[in-house]
Design a binder for these strands. Structure first.
Lengths: 92, 92
DNA sequence: TCACTTGCTATGCTTTCTGTAGCGCATTAA
DNA sequence: TTAATGCGCTACAGAAAGCATAGCAAGTGA
């Protein structure tokens, strides 16, 4: 699955998620929101996500495309799941 | 998101996905199905997925837990998406 | 002109993955 | 009893990816 290859890289899902959550933002803003990401990695991920058609440059910096928002919607179940998962881990 | 950290590693989602698709299977079978994964990495991912509670050892080798199947269900939208995505990329 | 912000790039180091080989153990067949 | 097979890994060595930090070049605003 080529999608897993793209998303299965450090910060790929995190960047897409964050960009959807905070809306269009500059490189530096995104870097701050992602806290521990390095600029080199952020830059790389952003380029990959642009080639993939999930992100593009817009007013206000980087933003998700329609396709990127679509993908985000399908990523959201994972967000919910992660709560269930946290509960599971604490019930050990 | 701790889940993204776990799943955002080379082959993490692929292993989980494959294990759900083919059912309980041996280390070697899994290695074959994943085609290009190296044994060291497969081993590492399997350990991580076990600690996370998504995979356990069972009759027939490795298998997904109920939680792992739950996660798989939430991963499936990505599988569908990847078809839309392929269509999008070919329509450029 | 000068300070400030922006999007990066550069450097050097650590961590992660890969490809290939093969070990130790268990089961099976001769 | 021995040989063959399949099993789950482990052991390297080299390549690639990531990190932290520093800083540059271009644009903007005062």
């Amino acid at each position: 699955m080529a999608l897993f290859d793209l998303l299965g890289r450090h910060w790929a899902m995190g960047v897409l998620w964050t960009l959807n959550e905070i809306g269009p933002s500059t490189f530096r803003r995104l870097q701050d929101e992602c806290e521990t990401i390095s600029p080199a990695t952020l830059n790389k991920r952003l380029k990959e996500l642009q080639v993939a058609g999930f992100v593009h440059r817009a007013e206000g910096g980087y933003a998700t495309t329609e396709l990127g928002r679509d993908l985000y919607e399908r990523l959201r179940p994972l967000g919910e799941f992660s709560k269930d998962w946290a509960r599971h881990l604490s019930n050990l």
